[in-house]
Design a protein around this nucleic acid. Structure first.
Lengths: 202, 202
DNA sequence: CACCGATGCGAGCGACCGCTCGCTTTCGGC
DNA sequence: GCCGAAAGCGAGCGGTCGCTCGCATCGGTG
């Protein structure tokens, strides 16, 4: 999809590095100066290339920002997967905490970049990309729990999953940004909330 | 604060209506075309006035948007107050649900305008105004519960209040925008989450 | 090593934006 | 109905932005 409007298809190693440098530069400018200041000219300057070169590979600002988001989303999915594997087979409470710890850790690691997006980027334009991640997370969560509950409660599970995904996403990001209290206390609180949402416990 | 940079102080009825029309127009343009397209020239055109007139009362785009936010925030505080009064004295669970119902109702009523802000407006610039509301809500919540718990648990209450406020705000807005399932089920879920966060129940 | 497509350059265009200012029109107390 | 103040007007300024295009340079394949 991102390729569709990309003008030149980089074939040589040199150009592939150029594309990387553009995305790197975009992340830096976004984190340092915010979304509005991240003009294509400025991103090009930060990358040490000319505007013309930038437009050789991206159709405009939106596509560059989308590439940055994709990088974050991909890295996120990647780094939570191990925790998911480790949690499989464990009781629900420690398993949940394990996964939430990994999620929070990843958000904390990307703190500056995420801070640059939250409250600065008009999210609507890029909602589709983040929604794709949300849907994947929701699907995984659903299937992890679905087996252990009666089929009649599937609707309730759907509601609990929607609520959980939104809650975890928002609270995790906000906690990482504001750090209003101790990390462990937060994980305890969040784990309790998520576990408490599971249909069987009600 | 908004007055500080306002150039002319409207004294006649005519100019007071002009200011109202500017804020109205800003809300319309924001809802229809988004934040980026909401240039001062466009807002002026929508309001049926000239750019010069607009700058007679506002120092720029930021101040106009802030005025729109203030309007929403004020109306919000106003319309939840009755539910708060009614809830006083009732047991925690029905009281909580009563208040959450009022919150959700207000968000639903302002749905279009809120939709225009969430994911479209770079919230960072106007965070102070919304944070003021959040702090007020947190204070009210804290004092409502503080009396009925041991002083030793005050830290835990602080954490629970922070989590509650963020959770209610986010879930309510997202639910009103997406309407992923039945309203009553959502209120049940949310009430359970909030009540479950109160320190005494743990 | 010669050649030609792939890559990179950067001045500059058209468009729009925020904002001003000299002027006209309207209001309201006398 | 007069007149000073209040309100409104709108062409246009300085500036930035997104983006292009003709041309120079690079690099791998025959």
């Amino acid at each position: 999809m991102a390729m569709a409007t990309r003008r030149r298809t980089p074939t040589q190693e040199r150009s592939r590095r150029t594309v990387e440098r553009i995305v790197d530069a975009a992340a830096v400018v976004l984190a340092d100066a915010g979304y509005d200041a991240a003009s294509t000219n400025r991103i090009a300057a930060q990358a040490g290339i000319s505007p013309g070169t930038l437009y050789g590979y991206f159709s405009g600002k939106d596509e560059i920002v989308a590439a940055v988001i994709d990088r974050v989303v991909d890295g996120f999915a990647e780094s939570v997967a191990p925790a998911l594997r480790e949690a499989a087979g464990q009781p629900i409470e420690p398993a949940t905490r394990l996964v939430l710890d990994a999620v929070l850790a990843e958000v904390e690691q990307r703190r500056d970049l995420i801070a640059a997006f939250i409250d600065r980027v008009p999210a609507e334009r890029y909602a589709a990309r983040v929604d794709a991640l949300r849907t994947r997370v929701a699907d995984v969560t659903f299937h992890l729990v679905a087996a252990s509950i009666p089929a009649a409660d599937r609707d309730e599970l759907d509601r609990a999953v929607w609520t959980s995904v939104r809650t975890v996403e928002h609270l995790t990001v906000r906690f990482a940004l504001a750090q209003p209290f101790e990390r462990d206390a937060f994980l305890d609180l969040l784990t309790g909330m998520v576990v408490g949402l599971a249909p069987p416990s009600r």
